[in-house]
Structures are given as structure tokens and as C-alpha cells.
């Protein structure tokens, strides 16, 4: 089972990113679940969502303690949350940033999702959309295929700029 933990802030689309990733994995022919952890969070508070991907039906509902991949949509949460908590040996990090940072030796990829969203004019209520471009980055990292990523995005959003943004993130991922 492949387990992904997504860190973001309320309102940044972490829950939708989790659902898109699960949908893309299902389009790859896998089983997947997306479980947002709902607390008493409000807009702007750090939030976490989980995605599990497996070749068999998934029967685990508890939170992910030992992720294979940590996705940080907003690096500022790292000031208040230990995003590397419980990382599996060999686990990887994907960050919304121009350049990868040192993350205690865990292989880290970076992509400027915010920049891509602004470039593609993907802005809703003043906030750049991060959850569709991130699927391109996840495809580049081999978590899902780019085909399924695009399929998932189109199933949930009609605006084709989301697909273009995902393709951009696929191209621009820095390992």
C-alpha cells in the first residue's frame, strides 16, 4: 500500500487534491481512498488529508502514521507542524516551492505550484489553485500516470486551464 499525507492550510484545496489523487489512481486501475482529517479547523489553519493507493481493496480507515510521500502545499505549515513525522524509510517529499530544500535527508522534489497557477490565471476568490497542477507533479514522480491525472482533473473540473497547469507542473518538477 502506498500512503500519501497532504499538508496544507484550510481553504488551499488539500482535500480536493487528495480526492483528485485518489480518483487518478482509480483511473490507473488501482484501489484508492482519500480521507480528509476534519478537525475544528477554520480557513487558514493547518490541515491534513490522506490518500491510500493499493492493488487490493483498502480496509484501513485510521490516519496515516508512516507515509511513503508527504506533500506540502504550503511550506509555511512547517513552522507549526512536523511534516516529516513518522516518515517511512525511503519516503519522499513533494513541496510547493521553487527549489527543493534539505528535508532531513529524505529525497525532496519541488515545483512552484503557486507560480504555475498565477501564470495559468487559475485563481479563485483571490487564491491560486494548487490542487490541479499538483497532479502533474505527482505524475512526474510516478505516483500516478499523467493520462489518469488529466482524466481525473477533467472529471472534476471543466476548465481546461487546470489540465494545462498539471502539464506545466509535470514539466517543471525539480528533483
Amino acid at each position: 500500500m502506498y500512503e500519501v499525507r497532504i499538508h496544507s492550510r484550510g481553504g488551499q484545496g488539500g482535500v480536493t487534491a487528495a480526492r483528485l489523487l485518489a480518483l487518478a489512481a482509480i483511473r490507473d486501475g488501482k484501489y484508492a481512498t482519500a480521507c480528509p482529517f476534519y478537525g475544528a479547523e477554520r480557513r487558514g489553519a493547518p490541515v491534513v488529508s490522506y490518500v491510500r493507493i493499493d492493488d487490493r481493496p483498502i480496509r484501513v480507515y485510521s490516519q496515516i502514521r508512516h507515509p511513503d510521500l508527504v506533500l506540502v502545499l504550503d511550506p509555511s505549515v512547517m513552522d507549526v507542524v512536523d511534516v516529516l513525522s513518522g516518515m517511512k524509510p525511503g519516503g519522499r517529499v513533494l513541496m510547493n516551492a521553487g527549489e527543493p530544500r534539505e528535508m532531513k535527508g529524505f529525497p525532496t522534489c519541488a515545483v512552484d505550484l503557486t507560480g504555475i497557477a498565477l501564470r495559468e490565471n487559475l485563481v479563485v476568490a483571490g487564491s491560486p489553485i494548487l490542487n490541479t497542477p499538483v497532479l502533474g507533479a505527482l505524475a512526474k514522480m510516478g505516483v500516478i500516470t499523467l493520462e489518469s491525472a488529466k482524466m481525473a482533473i477533467q472529471e472534476m473540473f471543466s476548465d481546461m486551464r487546470n489540465v494545462a497547469a498539471a502539464e506545466a507542473a509535470y514539466r517543471e518538477l525539480v528533483a
Partner: peptide, 12 residues
């Protein structure tokens, strides 16, 4: 159905 664990989790 279990609150959040099922109500808000996305599955196939």
C-alpha cells in the same frame, strides 16, 4: 455510516 470516516472519505 461512520461520520467522516465514511461520510467524507472518497472511495471507488
Amino acid at each position: 455510516l461512520d461520520g467522516f470516516l465514511l461520510s467524507h472519505s472518497m472511495h471507488p
